[in-house]
Nucleic acid binder design. Structure first.
Length: 206
DNA sequence: CCTGGGATTTTCT
DNA sequence: GAAAATCCCAGGA
């Protein structure tokens, strides 16, 4: 299977355009000789200094400084003391924004993903729809943790994005929805800044 | 189908 | 000391 990286130029797109453009593209994780790969099927945009759902709304801190950094970097943080969330930074330096990768359709290295998640086929007998359908789950499956925080996805060999060989997703296949788990965000909780592939079995929420 | 609680730790007030 | 861009499990309808 040939691997064509996403062009660096794409990461300079507007956050919302990129959140949609990432749907269908492949996430590749190389750990030693293992290659894990999956198709991105759900994303969420966190945009600007006023978005109350975004960590950046409370200013630049040690944790959030990557959100203010250049586009195309991995912003990874620990949530609820147990899970990691993987984001891709967007927009110019000093404008805080990022895209949370919420769900992936496993393509290669699926056995390893089960191992990484410490679950067995007996627990999830129905296909592989349950192993990477959430931001915390996909980080576990892909061995994404704090060590990769700040990784440059445009040049990294450990973690990067590749073109879907089957081509672009049609706009009619993209569903817009409210973001998950941001009820505290005032009027921003209603923003339709979550995107997912219509009828896909691997998304985290309808 | 739904609701609620527990796990667990970093970050910021 | 509280909150958190989550997940899993139990229990009720």
């Amino acid at each position: 299977m040939s691997i064509n990286r996403l062009p660096a130029k794409l990461f300079r797109a507007n956050t919302f355009a990129l959140a949609k453009a990432l749907l269908g593209q492949y996430l590749v994780r190389q750990t030693g000789k293992n290659v894990l790969m999956g198709k991105i099927v759900e994303t969420e945009a966190y945009y600007g200094p006023h978005d109350l759902a975004s960590h950046a709304s409370r200013g630049q801190t040690k944790r959030t400084k990557l959100m203010f950094d250049l586009p195309g970097l991995a912003y990874i943080y620990l949530i609820y003391g147990m899970y990691y969330c993987f984001n891709i930074t967007t927009e110019k330096k000093d404008f805080p924004a990022a895209i949370l990768i919420r769900a992936i359709e496993p393509i290669a290295g699926i056995k390893q993903m089960y191992k990484n998640r410490k679950i067995t086929l007996a627990k999830y007998p129905k296909l592989n729809t349950q192993i990477t359908n959430g931001p915390g789950k996909l980080c576990q499956a892909f061995k994404i943790d704090k060590k990769l925080n700040g990784e440059n996805l445009i040049i990294s060999k450990k973690l990067y994005l590749a073109k879907n060989p089957q081509g672009k997703i049609k706009p009619s296949q993209i569903v817009k929805a409210k973001r998950i788990g941001v009820d505290y965000a005032g009027k921003y909780k209603h923003k339709l800044w979550r995107y997912y592939l219509k009828n896909n079995q691997f998304i985290s929420h309808k």
